[in-house]
Amino acid sequence: MKLLEKIQLGNINLKNRMAMAAMTRGRTDINGLVGDMTVEYYTQRADAGLLFTEAIRISEEATGSPLTPGIFTDQQIEAWKKVTAAVHDKGGVIIAQLWHTGRIGHSIDRNGKLPFAPSSLPIQGMQHFTSEGRKDYEIPQEMTILDIKQTIKDYGQAAKNAITAGFDGVQLHAANGYLPNQFLAESANQRTDDYGGSIPNNARFVLEVMQELIDAVGWEKVGIKISPFNSYGDIVLDDSVGTYIYLIEELNKLDFAYVELMRCSPYSASPENDGANNEIELFGSKIRQTVIANSGYDKTSAEAELEKGIAKLISFGRLYIANPDLSERFEKNAALSEPDKTTIYGGGKHGYIDYPLWSE
């Protein structure tokens, strides 16, 4: 089974080609500190060749949702050290996903401050989950050039903090409608300066952040996650294919380890790929770095994807919520548990660290 074959990623040897995708779980305290439950959660899943953490806020300014972790205070760094040490003790590899939510946020959870975004364009057609329940999105504050430059520096400092915390690397979260994705999309970016108005300008922020991360911690510890056809967060691009082909061509000029390429879920419609879910072929074939395919895979489809030869690893999300020993279950063709949807976001131990192992 290809999924269980060893592979090298950057300078790290992985025991299999299965990754746990980043998934927000909403179980920190109000200061963004992870606790003993989070240590247990990641340790239980260390059978994966690679663990991506839930998205981690790079700064106070990056805050979007309540009870999500940060990595910008000494206390947060110390809390993450317990997670990374426990994962390493189990022979696991863990990477910190670095997160700035941009306009996907609300002043309720930002000390009354409006969220930053490329332009003052609010998200339409959806609401945000806040500590006071669902709220309509606010009109965000347009970032100045100084704001942009500071945010890029914040990414670099967060990457250094992640390595200090014991992580094996960092991943730029440039998918799912968050700040880097917002710069790429005309529905969120109507700037007329160097960071908007054309495909090269729209891509500039992502590329500058990636260079900052590489400079901060070294190419072998850096990767990026992109989602070319994902419209979450009211993301609409004038030319999705053209934008991402350009972005990939420019990323190919940089030295870093991998691209996690998120396809549209096979369970949701996408007018751009017309249900064909062809992002791996369309974009993955042009990526110079190692490709990790993501979203909606099961054992059969993951094996088929690896057989095509473009993707070298597959990342699984929800399957890992209810199946902490997923690689063993795949190996033994064991039945899979189903996640409790009511406990995915927020709560305590139930639906988080109490899913049984197959052997149990």
Rank of each mutant, 00 (worst) to 15 (best):
E5A: 11
N13Q: 15
M20S: 02
A21C: 11
T24S: 13
R25S: 05
R27W: 13
R27H: 13
I30G: 01
V34Y: 13
V34D: 13
T38M: 14
V39G: 03
A46F: 12
A48Q: 03
L51G: 04
A55L: 03
E61D: 12
I77N: 11
A79D: 12
D89F: 00
K90D: 13
V93A: 00
V93K: 13
H106L: 12
I108M: 02
I108H: 03
N111P: 00
G112Y: 09
K113I: 06
P115I: 07
I123D: 08
Q124E: 14
M126V: 04
S131V: 01
S131P: 04
E132N: 10
P140N: 06
L146G: 06
K149C: 00
T151W: 01
G156N: 09
A159M: 05
N161P: 11
T164D: 15
T164N: 14
H173D: 15
Y178Q: 09
L179F: 06
P180D: 11
N181Q: 06
Q182H: 11
Q190Y: 09
G196I: 09
G197A: 00
F205V: 00
L207S: 10
Q211V: 02
L213W: 07
I214Q: 08
D215E: 12
D215A: 10
E220K: 12
K221L: 03
V222K: 03
S227R: 02
P228D: 08
F229G: 02
D238K: 15
V241T: 14
G242E: 14
T243N: 08
L247G: 10
L247C: 11
E249H: 15
N252L: 03
S265F: 12
S270H: 07
E272I: 15
A276V: 09
I280F: 05
G284V: 15
S285C: 01
Q289F: 04
N294F: 00
D298P: 07
D298E: 09
A302V: 03
A302Q: 04
K308L: 06
K308R: 15
I310L: 08
R318G: 07
R318Y: 12
P324R: 04
A335R: 02
S337A: 11
K341W: 05
I344N: 01
G348M: 09
G351W: 14
L357M: 15
L357D: 10
W358K: 07
S359P: 00
